[in-house]
Design a protein around this nucleic acid. Structure first.
Lengths: 211, 211
DNA sequence: AGTTTAAGTGTACACGTGTACGCTATTATT
DNA sequence: AATAATAGCGTACACGTGTACACTTAAACT
């Protein structure tokens, strides 16, 4: 079992995945992407598609998985930058905005399929975003010594705000506009952080009233 | 010019609009809705469609307009309830959640087309949401005596959070889950309100240091 | 009353779609 | 060396799509 065959297969599988990714754009969503188009872009006969995926849906779920991976890489990258000092919120937002500028289509995929017509897709996207949220939650809880429930609410709100801003950023061609959006987003995240910190403190006080 | 003809025309036009609205669901978006299907649902021949709209796109924009109308009605309703006393935030969230339960498909339309493949649709949806945000902004600024820029950031963040929660609510079948989501959303809006109030105060102090 | 306008119908066409089926060529197994 | 497995291809089919075109029929206008 040298695996020269399996190796070749994996290679053209990637060809299909990449073909699909490359066709995504502002005016082209995964759901109005046809099996034949993807196959053609990959340089394959339409029927060869079935050697790798039973469905376009199966390919789609693969794409969502990859998008989730990208999201996790993003968080790692942000953490590395944070370790070098600077405002946590500002660095996070800037890192996220960079992702949108360089990987807009991947992000679009998540945004669209989150409210798409396939329950399986929606579930997959929601799962990826949940991972993302949970990781942020752990970080917040530990870094700011927050009540766990409060930390979750903050993380959830922050992710919603950042994704919303990302969605808006996708439709901006002007650089200055995007900078303005970043500033606003940072401020909004600070609102949330402030509110969360206060609630967490109040809860602690209620638990141990004296001291 | 009795208008019996124009009247009849308007009537079947509504037939088409309603047919389209009725076909929307969790597993059916406007973009994968065909002209023929809409015409059939309205009880018309496919080609009759063109007597009322040049395109499916034109019908779609009409739907977005109606959705915007629904949104504005929602805000009016919330204001009426608020006038009768109670927590502003809580009443707003509850009112919004009622909309989603009763008009889920209208809300889905907005969510989907906001990140859809048609620039015209995206623009239309964003415009409707902007109206909504602006109205909230005016209210906040006046009711809480906020700095105007701060009020806008709060309104924008609040709308993002509420729409995000609405999106999540659409995929929930369990009643208790939705109640929990409402509570969380209310708390998150309070975070934001708190943060906004503080920033506004700080800005005021900076402007007239002595008093 | 006679003529024009326009909403609605039915037929027809070209096109893109998913996929079933049989084939070839190359790798893997025996 | 002989056989089995399988990635990829080409053909073929039924189906749904948008829409052009010629038509009927009833309201509107002159």
């Amino acid at each position: 079992m040298s695996g020269v065959r399996a190796q070749q297969k994996e290679k053209t599988r990637r060809l299909l995945v990449d073909a699909a990714l490359n066709q995504l754009s502002a005016e082209r969503s995964f759901s109005n992407l046809s099996l034949r188009e993807v196959a053609k872009e990959a340089g394959l006969a339409p029927t060869s598609f079935y050697r790798h995926f039973t469905d376009m849906d199966e390919l789609g779920l693969t794409l969502v998985d990859e998008a989730g991976l990208t999201l996790r890489q993003l968080m790692r990258q942000a953490r590395q930058r944070i370790a070098k000092g600077g405002s946590v919120i500002q660095i996070s937002v800037e890192t996220f905005m960079e992702l949108i500028e360089s990987n807009g289509n991947v992000f679009r995929l998540l945004l669209r399929e989150r409210s798409g017509t396939s329950a399986a897709f929606r579930a997959a996207v929601i799962r990826e975003i949940r991972y993302f949220t949970m990781e942020l939650c752990d970080y917040l809880q530990q870094a700011n010594d927050l009540d766990s429930e409060v930390a979750y609410m903050q993380a959830n709100a922050a992710v919603t705000i950042v994704f919303g801003a990302g969605s808006d950023a996708l439709d901006m061609d002007d650089k200055a506009e995007r900078v303005q959006l970043s500033k606003q987003t940072i401020q909004q995240l600070r609102f949330i952080a402030r509110g969360a910190a206060e609630l967490s403190d109040r809860r602690k006080l209620a638990r141990k009233p004296r001291k």
